[in-house]
């Protein structure tokens, strides 16, 4: 059996947070990651799915040797990320989305060439790869533009090229499509899939990405770990994750204003596993996961009692969103709004 591309055991990270000037003495501790055990095989396209503050970036930072874990250990490409960081680095690369990094005074090609040199790629080969990838993400015609003159999205594309260009054994992408438009996101996803599936290289490539887009995790990744408040709640193929909910009935209901009815009161009904509600002008949208289809009658009954009209009712296949709700009890959007994750 080939060695695992990424392996973690009881991995944890605690941040010490200094209070404001007044309460300098009070030191809070924030658990960003707790007891993470992952085994990712070479050749896998692995997704970490979780809301803001879940600990995704923290995990990537540990795996890319930028951050020391507080507990546990992690190995990437067979090497310990703390003790053998220098052995890990030549084998990996990393790109964070949603930020515009790079030397604005250098052109796109110069920026990329420079980084390729840090990895010891011969110049000629580097230019070949750079041009190929620039074409692939559609910014080849901007190769001689100073990167300062690129829009944020185009800079992100440049950075994505920077990640693929060194042909790492393990590539880490932190929210690669954050801030990209629909078309660009699609291109980047296609590139990711293609890169992992490309068997030309003798080493099988592994890619770990984080995202908080359900669809991205669902359609793109071979396996997904759902992470919330620093803990991995489930880890499996998207279809296996959804399988658990397959026998359940999932309904999306659009209604008139809820008249005081809440998701909680509906969830309290015996056959309702979870219910989430988003209210908007003139009505609400509810997502219901029911233990069995017949339970729908009860729910409709409750609506009628409260004078809530049903505008639209549809049954649908489970999504990873439903899996998340099932695991956490709230939707990812609610978790992000809830402010429970103490973002400073």
């Amino acid at each position: 059996m080939p060695p695992l591309a990424i392996e973690t055991e009881a991995l944890g990270r605690i941040y010490k947070i200094r209070g404001s000037k007044k309460e300098k003495k009070i030191r809070k501790e924030l658990v960003a990651l707790a007891d993470v055990n992952l085994q990712i095989e070479t050749g896998e396209l692995f997704g970490l799915l979780g809301p803001n503050g879940a600990g995704k970036t923290t995990l990537i930072k540990i795996l890319t040797t930028l951050l020391a874990p507080t507990t546990g250990w992690a190995r990437v490409a067979g090497h310990d990320v703390v003790d053998a960081a220098a052995k890990v680095r030549p084998l990996i690369n990393m790109v964070s989305g949603g930020e515009s990094s790079g030397y604005g005074l250098l052109t796109v090609r110069e920026n990329l060439w420079m980084f390729s040199q840090f990895y010891g790629v011969p110049s000629k080969e580097a230019y070949r790869r750079i041009d190929e990838l620039l074409k692939r993400v559609g910014i080849f015609d901007r190769r001689h533009t100073k990167s300062a003159d690129l829009s944020t999205g185009l800079r992100q594309k440049m950075n994505i090229v920077r990640g693929f260009m060194t042909d790492p054994d393990v590539l880490f992408l932190d929210e690669p499509t954050l801030g990209l438009d629909v078309g660009a996101s699609r291109e980047v996803r296609a590139l990711i899939r293609e890169w992992v599936d490309d068997r030309r290289s003798d080493v099988r490539r592994t890619l770990l990405l984080t995202t908080h887009y359900m669809v991205e995790a669902d359609e793109l990744c071979d396996r997904v770990a759902i992470i919330n408040q620093g803990r991995v709640l489930a880890c499996d193929t998207p279809s296996a994750l959804k399988q658990h909910l397959q026998k359940d009935a999932i309904f999306e209901v659009e209604t008139s204003p809820l008249n005081g009815l809440t998701a909680q009161t509906i969830e309290d009904l015996p056959e309702v596993r979870t219910a989430t509600a988003t209210e908007h002008d003139g009505g609400a949208t509810l997502n219901l996961i029911l233990v069995e289809e017949n339970a729908l009658a009860h729910v409709i009954n409750v609506f009628t009692q409260k004078n809530v009209r049903i505008l639209k009712l549809s049954k649908r296949e489970p999504t990873l969103e439903d899996v998340f709700v099932d695991l956490v009890g709230r939707s990812m959007a609610d978790v992000e709004k809830g402010g429970e994750s103490s973002e400073q």
């Binding site: 040797t65 930028l66 220098a86 680095r89 990393m94 790079g102 980084f115 840090f118 990895y119």
Partner: peptide
């Protein structure tokens, strides 16, 4: 904003 990429590089 490249320091982390320098640190990740070999």
């Amino acid at each position: 904003r490249t320091l982390k990429y320098m640190y990740v590089a070999p």
